[in-house]
Design a protein around this nucleic acid. Structure first.
Lengths: 372, 372
DNA sequence: TTGTAAGCGTTATCAC
DNA sequence: GTGATAACGCTTACAA
């Protein structure tokens, strides 16, 4: 057994006062005489006293701890950044965060929920909630819940992202550069069924917006250029196989796309691998736009990407949680945040876009394709 | 105030027994009559009772929680993987993990230590410990400590990595392929001063081994090919500037290296960006080996990299922590784990290595450069 | 086999 | 201003 740690009583004895007085000094409230205060402070120093937050929580019915249930922090840096943001804001407000990865597994998510109830966390944040039943469990225990990015049920606060806006920025950027054959590699709406509370799932929103933007530019969407699947589908070594496969297929098309728009930066890594193999240069031979802005600055070339507001997502989620903790009867709030486009090196006008009939253009085209 | 949650007393009333009996059923120990047991179990179901782990911890002086103090989980996927491994093993043993990122900041690390003491975690794991004084604080509070990868003090358990073995595998691989001008981009020993308890810092071990391997192969180390700095030095957009800069400098050399060995996969991202800009192909024009095996499978081309045993690092660290929790008087243990080399697409013989004078060799040379 | 009661380290409500 | 004292929800001798 560990040696008993220093308690209020120890400090009280050392200072020759009662525990109540020590508590008043520690918590800085109530009337304490000047001389007594300094004596107590000296005793705290001398004994090396640290308040026992566990005991305090038992008494105050507040743990100053929140739970954060995440899909899988290792699957995508997006989660790492959101987790960090939640943690940072929590810390700034005197809270600590428990993390739990459910790996898309409803049973694991339930385990997470139960363990958080048992530890009496003050609120739970989901990125993302898997099963509405698990949210219900928390609500039955009267715990505030905040959902990040994907809203599974409508009875809790949530922080969402304006996905159509993100897609629109990327598409306008590409179309503005002169691209007309723009491929889309993203999540299959059929694989990500949406909760009834939303008219469209994120996948539907993105795909619809992609097509809308093309039509607005007078381009007829080519079904051959749309490749859907899972966002997260890793190869045995952790690499992205989905983006790689789709990109290879697109390159084999009789009429190749001049630009690729992919649903996550992770998919972009697979796309870049396929392009590298095919000895195609980005953006010279083909342009590439990612989504999330996580791996984007680390890739070669640095990727143009739709940046998710990851820091704000986490910060806002904690703030909503805190509001619900402090006023449990307050109505749930839904906040929608805007993404923004970060333009880097992976986008440029399509090759041959500068007057293709001109003889010098051929020269330029070769130069732009050169890989060595 | 939140509605009071269901307690043992509520269950006891519902079942018509005492709280002690309910506790016995919950914890599955002590004698309980068959009929009583089922009545209690029914009452637990009916009331939706969840034990309050906070209260239990107060009574048993065990929180079933550990603290994990990390340099910065967002800085390198290495940390994410170690964190996940610790968390997974903790969970499997009924523990939860508090995370704290100190960002290389001693004051923040101290905050972490204090908050963990206040929360009475059962043990603390460091990846990496920044300041010996903070470890001392924990030891004064009689908390078991485990250090991962870097050992700051000798009085706690630790899990280390055999760095020389990792460097040796990479160097032998490159030398075996025929490379003789191998550049080294890594941590500057002067920037990472080591604790007195180790004869050499990790940086010194790596650099020494790099040189030893060259000499063993009869190659005189060229100081021009050694570029030292910080491992982690991110640009404003999160990209790696250090690997980029060093690689550009190396490429400007009169006699270019034929291979690059970099100290982290993060540095490799910068190197790849410089190579891409210079329109050099990997491994055709230059070979590249990373360290950590984190981003390696995501890069184009997929990187050959020295894999750190991240999962084992975390798992072992928790096991050592658990051993210390269960027997506080047991002696600290130091475990050293072996890395391994993962060969992927970024390494090949130097260009022109297959009998450069022979005409058919040119054909073969091209084949060996082919990546598709 | 079950119940009683003390105590874990706080905070909070009273008196004094 | 300060000190008793009763919770908070649980575990665990010890009694019955």
């Amino acid at each position: 057994m560990r040696p008993r740690s220093v308690t209020l009583l120890d400090v009280a004895r050392a200072a020759g006062v009662s525990r109540a007085t020590v508590a008043r000094v520690i918590n800085g409230d109530g009337y304490v005489g000047e001389e007594t205060r300094s004596r107590v402070e000296a005793a705290v120093q001398a004994t090396g006293y640290r308040p026992n937050v566990v005991a305090r929580g038992l008494r105050t019915q507040r743990s100053y701890t929140i739970g954060h249930i995440v899909l899988e922090i290792g699957a995508n840096p997006f989660f790492t950044h959101v987790v960090r943001a939640v943690e940072g804001e929590a810390l700034a407000n005197g809270y600590k965060t428990f993390l739990f990865n459910h790996k898309g597994n409803t049973a694991d998510e339930r385990l997470a929920v139960e363990s958080f109830i048992e530890r009496r966390v003050d609120a739970v944040i989901f990125t993302y909630a898997q099963d509405a039943a698990n949210i219900a469990l928390l609500r039955a225990a009267a715990m505030p819940v905040v959902q990040i990015e994907r809203q599974r049920t409508g009875d809790t606060s949530a922080v969402l992202v304006d996905n159509p806006a993100g897609v629109r920025m990327a598409m306008r950027h590409l179309i503005g550069l002169g691209h007309r054959r723009i491929a889309f590699i993203g999540g299959d709406p059929a694989l990500y069924p949406h909760a009834r509370i939303q008219p469209r799932s994120i996948e539907e929103e993105r795909l619809d917006t992609y097509r809308d933007c093309l039509r607005e530019a007078g381009i007829d969407p080519d079904p051959d250029l749309v490749r859907l699947g899972r966002y997260i589908k890793l190869g045995a070594d952790g690499s992205d196989s989905e983006g790689y496969r789709h990109t290879r297929d697109l390159l084999a098309l009789a009429e190749r796309p001049t630009a690729l728009f992919v649903g996550t930066d992770m998919l972009a890594t697979g796309a870049l691998q396929a392009l590298y193999e095919a000895r195609l240069r980005v953006p010279d031979d083909i342009a590439l736009v990612g989504f999330d802005d996580t791996l984007a600055p680390h890739l070669a070339p640095k990727l143009t990407s739709v940046a998710q507001p990851m820091a704000e997502l986490g910060l806002t989620a904690f703030q909503l949680a805190l509001a619900a903790i402090e006023d449990p009867r307050s109505a749930p709030r839904v906040v929608t945040l805007a993404p923004h486009l970060v333009v880097r090196q992976s986008t440029a006008p399509p090759s041959g876009s500068t007057r293709p009939a001109d003889p010098p253009a051929r020269e330029g085209e070769i130069a732009s394709r050169q890989t060595v």
